[in-house]
Amino acid sequence: MPSISRGEVEHLARLARLAVTEDEVDRFAAQLDQIVQAVAQVGQVADQDIPPTSHAVPLTNVFRRDDVRPGLSQQQAVAAAPAAEDGRFRVPRILGEEA
């Protein structure tokens, strides 16, 4: 298995929205490398024709009726917000386009 580069760690940290220091990049690279080496043995089944299991319990078609249920009040909704204004969550400026 290839070792994990600093660049890769930085990319992962950005995807995960984790600000990392230079030191942390090195530390993560080393630790991830160690863990990935240790868990990579699962790859031995990668080519085998085995159905993957994502749910231990084989349920299907669990649905809810389309009936309105009471939710939270506006006050409850924003009660824990770090900042709120006029019943809306106030957040730092957003860069870029809407997704």
């Binding site: 868990v39 699962v42 089944v45 990668a46 085995i50 159905p51 993957p52 299991t53 994502s54």
Partner: peptide, 9 residues
């Protein structure tokens, strides 16, 4: 993906 196959095993 492999881990989910292991789960099956």
């Amino acid at each position: 993906g492999s881990a989910q196959k292991v789960r099956t095993l």
